[in-house]
Design a binder for these strands. Sequence first.
DNA 1: TGAACATATGAACAGATGCTCATATGTTCA
DNA 2: TGAACATATGAGCATCTGTTCATATGTTCA
Lengths: 123, 123
Amino acid sequence: MGEKMALHDVEHCDACQVHKDVVSAVNARMPEEDELYDLAELFKVFGDSTRIRILFVLFESEMCVCDLAEALQMTQSAISHQLRILKQAKLVNNRREGKTVIYSLADGHVRTIIAQGREHIEE
Amino acid sequence: MGEKMALHDVEHCDACQVHKDVVSAVNARMPEEDELYDLAELFKVFGDSTRIRILFVLFESEMCVCDLAEALQMTQSAISHQLRILKQAKLVNNRREGKTVIYSLADGHVRTIIAQGREHIEE
DNA sequence: TGAACATATGAACAGATGCTCATATGTTCA
DNA sequence: TGAACATATGAGCATCTGTTCATATGTTCA
């Protein structure tokens, strides 16, 4: 921030003057830049049907990579790349069992978020 | 579907044979292709910090396009493009009042989904 | 140890995405 | 009606994303 904040003039309508207090109030309650960014990054992870499908599979049962590939009819590589993203977002956990690696859901937020999403689109 | 479903052989581990019943069960409970796609599309909309910021502003108050541009220090065009996406996803409603167009949150799922997302990243 | 298996990862490429710029559409008011 | 204002939209461009392909890492067992 600071000198980088060279607030270029932004257009505003006449009504804007009236609502200026609301704009200030809004900015006061807006989360930090970092949190907004992290939130968007989190939802980006849900924003791909391959990853959504992986999560649905894991709703039923923890599973190894190759079973996931089989279940979704995709290559091991593609699944592995996506699992990496899901893991970085802490949506899944994994543990090694011999040669295989077992992935599972990380926490309940995943179910809640997807459930709310499903409710929304069914309207 | 049909002839397009030329199930290319997918690799599978030895353990996979054991879990084959689980894979079948999973596929039975998997939502339709369309729903999975729509779900991903919905979350994609949440997956951009500009749109997240717009939603946070609308949490506080319904608002016209130029006030949103002012609040977020972005151009009217950029905001308008994003509002279009939010509207297509039925996350916001709008109504015209004279020259201005007022946008507001569409329903409670938006708050719930974002609230769950915030909970998740604060761990 | 070395072969076979399971998973991870880097490079590369095609397709999607978000912003800007220019301009069109829609509304009010003199 | 025409000027001014508010918003919407299409084209273009730079960037990001998901898959594939090749290959590396890690594990088991003979």
